[in-house]
Design a protein around this nucleic acid. Structure first.
Length: 383
DNA sequence: CGGATTTGACCGGCGC
DNA sequence: GCGCCGGTCAAATCCG
């Protein structure tokens, strides 16, 4: 996984991964019709910038705006969710920080309440408006029935009309970043996925004459490659998943996507506040102890090594305790890893062949489904 | 069979 | 007004 991305053999791929997103979530898709962005056959991958240059860009642009402003919370950062992933960042971000976040945060309305103290969506630091907002989206049963009748004439897909001149109130959002191979981190609550969007993520559309296509393609985020007029174009796609808490009356939402800057990072954005007790998970997963009596918000239960052992196929990433992204530590060189990493976490760290890694990444990111039609996938499955 | 997920369609906001 | 995009819905499908 990550070790492939930043492999020494393919430094420009690493640079690509480190390159900051030029625009917000609406990164422009490469213009195939006009050929905009096409280059001549001499262009190499990331040739305009060296590996270290791009690393520098990454640090200059990303780190100061997001990571350098990170202040260690008074209590340990949360989740290592049960995926054995490690938390990178966890705090309520101020508007500036949120804008620095890839995309979930960039859409944060200014009216959002943000507090600079560590908390989770369940923490008391969130505004108490969650009920209202939740009711906006989840009307009462009576209202539902009434509207169902009204909607008889309407198209099935048509949505219920919203009150005019009333901007939808957004819940305060809370984002944190986690190094993980799995997108949906188990935080102990039960979530139902209600939507998924493929978002374009093309900071620097990469292209190259097909005749010069020597270096392996950097399959680390989900490139959709196509060939047009002797040029190989790649559009970077990623999925954004939308989850809703399954508890009745709880309108908490959760948005999960990969970071544009580092696809090994999962950006989880919570919206709203749970209005129910923290569910006790029978799985014994690591959970968040949502003790409402605690004025410090939730505390987090450290996963037991035994449990992590069961999850080792997830290839947990050992995160750097430094607030900034130390992407240089992610190399194919085994010596770059800390010797203190338990054996059971090291077992599978370097067993990724380019082939399996590419495939698994495509699978993990859900990109396969974006690129390959469902029918084709089904056929492949049957074979 | 019930709950969860997938996925195409739809709506509203926003920028041009 | 139009197009793009984020967010949501809900039927179809999957899965235990």
């Amino acid at each position: 996984m990550a070790n492939l991305i930043f492999s020494d053999e393919n430094p420009s791929a690493a640079a690509a991964a480190a390159a900051p997103e030029a625009t917000s979530s609406g990164g422009s898709i490469f213009d195939m019709a006009t050929g905009a962005g096409a280059c001549d056959g001499d262009t190499k991958w990331g040739s305009s910038l060296g590996f270290m240059d791009l690393l520098g860009i990454h640090q200059d642009v990303i780190a100061p705006s997001l990571f350098d402003s990170f202040q260690p919370p008074p209590i340990l950062p949360p989740p290592p969710p049960s995926t054995s992933s490690e938390p990178l960042l966890h705090q309520q971000l101020d508007a500036k920080q949120l804008q620095a976040l890839p995309s979930p945060a960039s859409t944060l309305p200014e009216s959002s309440e943000v507090l600079n103290n560590p908390a989770t969506p369940n923490s008391s630091s969130f505004s108490s408006s969650s009920n209202e907002a939740a009711n906006d989206h989840e009307p009462t049963k009576a209202e539902d029935d009434e509207e169902e009748e009204q909607d008889q004439d309407k198209t099935k897909k048509q949505l219920k009309p919203k009150k005019k001149n009333q901007k939808r109130q957004r819940e305060p959002r809370f984002a944190f970043m986690t190094k993980s191979e799995v997108d949906h981190l188990d935080d102990g609550y039960r979530w139902r996925k209600y939507g998924q969007k493929a978002v374009k993520n093309s900071p620097f559309p990469r292209y190259q004459s097909i005749s010069n296509l020597i270096t392996p393609l950097p399959f680390h985020i989900g490139p959709l490659m196509f060939i047009f007029s002797k040029h190989c174009y790649i559009i970077w796609l990623k999925n954004r998943s939308y989850y809703r808490c399954t508890s009745a009356g709880c309108g908490v939402k959760k948005r999960v996507e990969r970071s544009s800057d580092d696809p090994t990072i999962v950006v989880t954005t919570y919206e709203g506040q749970h209005k129910h007790p923290y569910p006790i998970t029978p799985r014994g997963s690591i959970g968040i102890n949502m003790d409402p009596s605690s004025s410090f918000g939730p505390s987090f239960v450290v996963p037991q090594p035994q449990y992590l052992h069961q999850q080792q196929q997830l290839q947990p990433y050992i995160y750097n305790s430094s607030p900034s992204l130390n992407i240089t530590s992610i190399t194919t060189s085994g010596s770059s890893f800390n010797a203190s990493i338990p054996d059971f976490l090291q077992d599978r760290r370097f067993n990724t062949s380019p082939t399996s890694s590419s495939a698994s990444l495509l699978r993990d990111n859900g990109l396969l489904q974006d690129i390959v039609p469902t029918q084709m996938r089904k056929e492949a499955k049957e074979q």
